[in-house]
């Protein structure tokens, strides 16, 4: 993705964000909508709440941190702040992403912390109502239920809505580090 494309998207985000706020205030009858940014990781598509997204930028090199889980790619300098970057593909138990400068880092705010998620590409901004969100079916692997807030169907595609708090929980990372070490 070129810089210009990213810039355009940034503006889009801002515009859509205010749009949503206005809608919510004036039109009480309309069901509350929320917006998600969706991105691709391999064949799958995932989404995060747009309000958590701070910025989207192309992949640049990171400084790796020693003795951390495999999906912790390292830290980068985001205008003077040290931001950890997590590899979403790797977090889901697959191999590390072979990152090129076509890959995208989504900078998100989770609670007090700022972090980046490495994904293949950003695909869309989805506006959905609460009814559109399906619950995650009870599957054996309990991590699906834990890491996803819900499932969306968009044009026959399934989008998993990520629960970032659970995915990049510090305790989980710490125990992951022990497993790695």
């Amino acid at each position: 993705m070129s810089d210009e494309a990213i810039d355009a998207r940034d503006i889009d985000l801002a515009a859509l964000g205010t749009d949503r706020a206005v809608k919510g205030k004036d039109d009480v009858v309309v069901k509350a909508t929320s917006q998600y940014i969706s991105f691709r990781v391999g064949e799958e598509e995932y989404g995060v709440d747009i309000m958590l997204v701070r910025e989207i930028k192309g992949w640049v090199g990171v400084t790796s941190l020693p003795n951390t889980p495999k999906y912790m790619r390292g830290v980068l300098n985001l205008r003077g702040i040290i931001v950890p970057i997590f590899d979403l593909r790797c977090r889901f138990g697959m191999d590390r992403t072979e990152a090129t400068n076509l890959h995208v880092v989504v900078i998100v705010q989770v609670g007090e912390r700022t972090m980046g998620i490495l994904v293949d590409a950003v695909s869309d901004i989805l506006t959905v109502t609460e009814d559109d969100i399906n619950s995650v079916p009870d599957i054996d692997q309990r991590q699906d239920g834990e890491y996803l807030n819900g499932l969306l169907t968009v044009d026959e595609r399934m989008v998993g809505l990520l629960n970032l708090n659970a995915l990049f929980n510090l305790d989980a990372i710490a125990s992951g580090a022990q497993m790695a070490g």
């Binding site: 090199g61 003077g80 702040i81």
Partner: peptide, 27 residues
């Protein structure tokens, strides 16, 4: 000095991080 803890967690043997003249993070 920039704290690693503010956005991540502390790491054994590393006290903090810094940003070098080329914009790269260094531990």
């Amino acid at each position: 000095m920039k704290s690693l803890e503010s956005n991540y967690s502390s790491i054994d043997g590393i006290s903090a991080a810094t940003i070098l003249g080329n914009g790269k993070v260094c531990l």
